[in-house]
Nucleic acid binder design. Structure first.
Lengths: 140, 140
DNA sequence: TTATACTTTACTATGTTTATCAACATAGTA
DNA sequence: TACTATGTTGATAAACATAGTAAAGTATAA
């Protein structure tokens, strides 16, 4: 089991947008791509999805780009993960088998994950990032 | 993010074997396939992997088959998941990016999952399954 | 009108899941 | 020993999902 690249990218992209909150100026795709080291051509699709999910808004034309639709404090990792990565349960579980022991266990596991992710907002992530960047100072 | 069918199958197969513990007689692949509703040709490969991981043993020839190598009580879901499904972290995370905020968060998440899974042994699963089978009585 | 940046569609590459088949190993029997 | 039924092992390939690329289309500020 793995967190997909797409999910990781989506979270990192949202972090980049959260950094600018509540500025009015939108951020261009290539900026996000550079700062977060995400393949630009792929990021395009992810941002469109995030827009469809009601997490970000977009502006076209010159000085266009993307911006958060809500305050970072109001966006939890749980919401993003659920929307972008989908549920934890295996696809194959049929109706009959949904009564199986493991259906119960996987749901229990999903609950434990949610508990952790509900308590992390993108405001928290910004604070954590500042700590790491300050200590290591890796980026230019 | 999803629990792969393979992981789900592996757990169900181990449950089928756990039911027979500590009988001496090995269980054939087609028996496991039938009772757990797992595609037989695929199950073959999963069992070979489980054998390589030191979870089960196999006997060839007439009356051959598979059996657990340890008591169900001594096998946790955490061990199986870690071995079969691999780590939670996204593959793409490079060395530089491993210092990223999300690398930390994904590890935290993995820890929360482990805590749940460490506390579930295949003995527990057998008991749960009995409860469900007894109540619903779905299988022939 | 024009440059710019988002939007949409189509395509390629890679990896995972599942199915098929031939080769090999073992136990029982004569 | 040789034969045979039964079952494991391993290689290969089709079907599908994911990850990433490319380029033409569309909206908007200047």
């Amino acid at each position: 089991m793995r967190i997909s690249a797409k999910c990781d990218y989506a979270c990192r992209a949202l972090t980049a947008l959260a950094k600018e909150w509540p500025n009015k100026k939108p951020i261009q795709i290539h900026m996000i791509s550079q700062s977060q080291d995400i393949p630009m051509r792929y990021l395009v699709h992810i941002l469109i999805q995030l827009k469809g999910l009601g997490l970000v808004t977009s502006t076209r034309g010159k000085a266009g780009g993307y911006a958060l639709l809500r305050a970072p404090k109001k966006i939890t990792l749980a919401e993003v993960m659920r929307k972008v990565c989908g549920p934890l349960l295996p696809r194959a579980s049929s109706a009959a088998k949904s009564e199986s022991v493991f259906a119960t266990i996987w749901k229990e596991l999903e609950g434990a994950m949610s508990k952790v992710l509900e308590n992390i907002t993108f405001d928290d992530i910004l604070k954590k990032a500042k700590g790491i960047d300050g200590a290591i100072n890796y980026h230019i």
